[in-house]
C-alpha cells in the first residue's frame, strides 16, 4: 500500500524576484516517495579514498539507489558505531574538510541523477555558519541535511537557515520518542523523517526485532509524511521484514565494512551488489 500523498513542503516558494537563489526544495527529493520504496546508501565522504568514495557512489546509483547520503566526517561522532567512526577518522586523516566535502558533493551531483543529502554533526556546520553552510550546500547540489545531534527542539536557527537556502531538514525519530513528539518531528521534517530502528548507535545488526516493527507501526499511525528507516539495515531480509512498515531504507555501516575489507578494485562492485540486493528486496 502506498500511502504517500504529496509531501507537504515547508520550503518557501521563490516568489520574491529579488532572490536570485531558488529556495524551494529540490523536486527530486520531493518526488522520492511517489513511486516505490527507495534504498538510500550512506557513504562517508572521502572514505576509503576520494576516488574509492566516488566509485562507490556511482556504483550504488547504477545499482538502483534512489538517493545518496554523504557523511561529513567529524572528530567526535557520538551517534555512530565503530564502523562509521573508523571511516570518519580515515577521511579526516586523509585531509577531508567541510569545503572538501562540498567539493565532492558538487562533483557527484553533476554526475548522478539522484538527490544528495548531507549527514553530519552540528559543530562543523556551526563553525562555517548555519546560513553560509546551507547556501554552500545547496549551491553544491545537495538537497537536504540530516544532523543526528540536533534534535528538533534545538533546531530553530538551523531550520530557518535551511529554509532560506531551499535545503530540506530531515529529523530523527527514535524508539524512545513518545507519540506527541513523533507528530512534532514529522511536522518539522521537510519531506520525510528518519526512524532509528533501535535505541543505539549506527552499526550492522543481525536481525530486525519485533520491537522495531512495533515502533514503526506506532510511527505509521502518527506520521503524516513518509519516513525511512535506518541503523542496522544491511540484509535483504531486513528490508523484506520492514517493507510494509517504512517508506524507504538507509544502509550505511554495511557499506563502510565492504569498503574497508575489500581490495580496491572490487570494493565499488561490492557496494553495487549489496545495494542491488536491497533494491530488489524493496521492490
Amino acid at each position: 500500500m502506498n500511502r504517500t500523498s504529496t509531501p507537504i513542503s515547508l520550503a518557501r516558494r521563490s516568489q520574491a524576484p529579488r532572490l536570485r537563489m531558488d529556495t524551494s526544495v529540490d523536486f527530486r527529493l520531493r518526488d522520492l516517495f511517489t513511486v516505490g520504496k527507495p534504498v538510500i546508501p550512506f557513504l562517508t565522504a572521502g572514505f576509503p579514498t576520494v576516488s574509492g568514495f566516488v566509485d562507490a557512489a556511482v556504483a550504488a546509483c547504477d545499482a538502483g539507489a534512489r538517493a545518496l547520503e554523504i557523511g561529513m566526517p567529524f572528530s567526535d561522532p557520538l551517534a555512530d558505531g565503530p564502523a562509521i567512526q573508523y571511516s570518519s577518522q580515515v577521511a579526516l586523516a586523509g585531509g577531508i574538510t567541510m569545503p572538501r566535502v562540498l567539493e565532492l558533493t558538487t562533483r557527484l551531483s553533476a554526475r548522478l541523477p539522484i538527490p544528495i543529502l548531507l549527514m553530519g554533526y552540528l559543530n562543523p556546520i556551526s563553525q562555517m555558519g548555519f546560513a553560509r553552510f546551507a547556501r554552500a550546500a545547496r549551491a553544491a547540489g545537495a538537497t537536504g541535511t540530516i544532523v543526528p545531534d540536533c534534535p528538533i527542539d534545538e533546531a530553530t536557527e538551523w531550520r530557518s537557515a535551511s529554509r532560506h537556502a531551499g535545503m530540506a531538514n530531515v529529523f530523527l525519530i527514535a524508539p524512545t520518542t513518545p507519540d506527541e513528539r513523533v507528530a512534532l518531528i514529522d511536522a518539522g521534517s521537510t519531506v520525510f523523517s528518519y526512524c532509528v530502528s533501535v535505541a543505539g548507535v549506527t552499526g550492522v545488526r543481525r536481525d530486525v526485532s519485533e520491537s522495531t516493527r512495533r515502533f514503526l507501526r506506532r510511527v505509521r499511525r502518527v506520521a503524516k509524511k513518509p519516513y525511512v528507516v535506518g541503523f542496522g539495515i544491511s540484509q535483504p531480509e531486513h528490508v523484506r521484514a520492514l517493507k510494509l512498515l517504512a517508506d524507504g531504507f538507509v544502509v550505511g555501516s554495511a557499506l563502510v565494512k565492504i569498503l574497508r575489507e575489500s581490495p580496491k578494485p572490487r570494493a565499488a562492485a561490492g557496494v553495487g551488489r549489496t545495494i542491488g540486493a536491497l533494491v530488489r528486496a524493496a521492490e
Partner: peptide
C-alpha cells in the same frame, strides 16, 4: 542546551 541524539531526549 540539549544537543544529543533523539533517543536520549525523553
Amino acid at each position: 542546551g540539549r544537543y544529543v541524539p533523539e533517543t536520549l531526549i525523553p
